[in-house]
Design a binder for these strands. Structure first.
Lengths: 344, 344
DNA sequence: GCTAAAAACCAAAGCGCTTTGGATGCCTAA
DNA sequence: TTAGGCATCCAAAGCGCTTTGGTTTTTAGC
């Protein structure tokens, strides 16, 4: 069923039917009603491509997910973020176009999306410091919104970020307040912008307590369960092991816990663990007292809000690029406790 | 830059340029070369919508992910599966259109994709027994491929599945061979087709060892970490607790391990745990001897292959719907061991 | 009853591509 | 020399929609 068939059926012109369906005023109330009823009855929806061709918009947002070629790792955050964004899109009549491409093909992928006119805008994931994607997008004129920030990008742009620095500085202070003086950091890859901010927050927190930053107890890599495990084993084997660990992701923290428990160490007593928690849906425990003390910020909610930001930007491009800075909530769970008395 | 501009630039007709770019023979080699060079130089790609309008195809595949409205849970498998599918799509020039919709709106969503002509086919996720989506898709004539199978659907259709029954029967036998007689099952929701097959395999395995099926030690729910934990705590509190647990998902198994370790029980000695492992990228440990004994099957690979199956089906619809049955690999890790001597 | 304005509707152009159905020029064979 | 056959190229129609620039019908005002 297409417009012509529907209008023939109704004995109206395509113009009138189109207008009736799109809410233009030049149609009488009764005709509009008749048209809408008929459209519903015959499951008519206008052809996306034809509509897009005519209007010059695609009503679709692109997500280009860069994938590390080396071991095809998918960021576990991704699913929840996407779910949030998808909710916003469907509420606003947008489709979501997803591509996962090798790091090296990202630029080409953006260019193609733009020149093929497949999307009205894109979400930029996992920004790095001085992210080259933003300059490219500025250059080709494709509207975008960034999940996180890209330090070093001069021009104003649209972003949503968690206040990572503040969160990790507060987390560190929380630990120093408990008497911890030797606090390890298990961070994400520090080419990523958020990781540098978390690190900065961590260092601020240490300095505020008069503790020297010790690179020997700082780790940084892709945030897998295995990395958390490996790092912890490694830290425990040190001459002066930390009494607390600050972790950048819940997945990682699961590995930390495994390493500790395997060695008969109890979280919160023998080792304090404080992790960032993206509130991933499948890791929710629903317990009243959470297992982990955590800086918490829902990545699903981030997806919802950032998508809205981008849509707003697309529909009113003249206004200044909006941004949102979310504060993480520091929730106290059972994984932290006072530092052991230093009776070495 | 559009076709007209490019052809004007080259002093050729749109026809010739179009043919040159699409590899038709009615163009001299030198002209084709000249055209392709110019297209590259000016970053020309044909407008997707216009091309789609003209050809009647969209070169896009839809993924409609149903989301349980109750707590907006995203299946953690999803990201890896999607990554696999995305790889196939980009290799074949397809785009991926993703929507996440409330369970109740799935049918409407398919209808809309079809009537708007947004996709050439769809992937069906998480099929249930007698899944109504398949009948709908048959009815509206939208090509599809199913990740898993839908018992009860009469007509042949395109699918890719892990042999869940065989995997879980072999897993159960592995445990009975070790002397276990009381084996619990922590399964996914049994409205889902794969869960019923796993259960059937489990029951087969028990029967083969002459063990009665005991519903008291069988659990079934959404496969979260919390569910694994809860179930295990619960099983351990029984008068006659199991000596082994068969788990349907790695995420769940993490919860099982947490419950055990919290109680000072050691996997493989005090309790044998065997889990299905979808080889999720962020849970890879890379250890030579894996922590968990598992029936293993890469869901990423499933995504890659199923996408290819669907594309084949779209490009040659006349052939019989193809399907693939993957066998899971049973890998022995450190989480299983002989049953404790029954010296009750 | 007549005119002007407002309301309701319509024909056709145009979005950027593919593809049909020719044209045009050149070469070969009779 | 000329017709036929190829190899190249092109003009224009058509995909399904929106939108411009009308035309026709009603309504309102006097």
């Amino acid at each position: 069923m297409n417009l012509k068939q529907l209008s023939d059926l109704l004995g109206l012109s395509q113009t009138t039917v189109s207008r009736a369906l799109n809410g233009y005023p030049e149609v009488s109330a009764k005709t509009r009603d008749r048209v809408q009823r008929a459209a519903k009855e015959h499951h008519y929806s206008p052809n996306t491509r034809a509509k897009g061709l005519a209007t010059g918009t695609s009503m679709a947002i692109g997500h280009v997910i860069p994938m590390a070629a080396k071991h095809e790792m998918v960021n576990p955050i991704f699913a929840d973020f996407i779910a949030g964004a998808a909710a916003t899109y469907s509420a606003n009549g947008y489709d979501m176009l997803l591509s996962m491409v090798d790091d090296s093909k990202v630029a080409q992928s953006y260019r193609s999306l733009q020149s093929r006119g497949s999307v009205d805008g894109v979400i930029v994931h996992s920004p790095t410091v001085n992210d080259s994607r933003l300059t490219l997008l500025d250059e080709i004129g494709l509207p975008y919104a960034v999940h996180g920030r890209a330090s070093g990008h001069g021009d104003p742009y649209c972003w949503l970020d968690v206040n990572n620095k503040s969160a990790f500085s507060r987390a560190t202070t929380f630990l120093t307040d408990l008497g911890h003086r030797r606090i390890a950091l298990i961070n994400g890859q520090e080419t990523l912008d958020f990781a540098t901010r978390r690190r900065a927050g961590y260092e601020d927190g240490l300095r505020a307590a008069g503790i020297a930053v010790d690179p020997a107890i700082m780790r940084s890599d892709e945030m897998t369960e295995a990395f958390g495990y490996r790092s912890t084993v490694n830290l425990l084997a040190m001459d002066a092991p930390p009494t607390a660990i600050l972790v950048s992701s819940m997945i990682c923290a699961l590995g930390v816990r495994r390493a500790l428990e395997e060695r008969g160490l109890k979280m919160g007593r023998d080792m304090s663990v404080l992790t960032h928690d993206d509130a991933l849906s499948y890791l929710e425990t629903g317990e009243t007292i959470p297992a982990f003390t955590a800086t918490r910020s829902s990545v699903r909610e981030a997806g919802e809000k950032l998508a809205q930001l981008l849509i707003d930007r697309i529909t009113s491009p003249e206004s200044a690029p909006p941004h949102i800075l979310l504060e993480a909530v520091l929730t106290v769970g059972r994984s932290t406790g006072p530092a052991p008395q230093s009776g070495v």
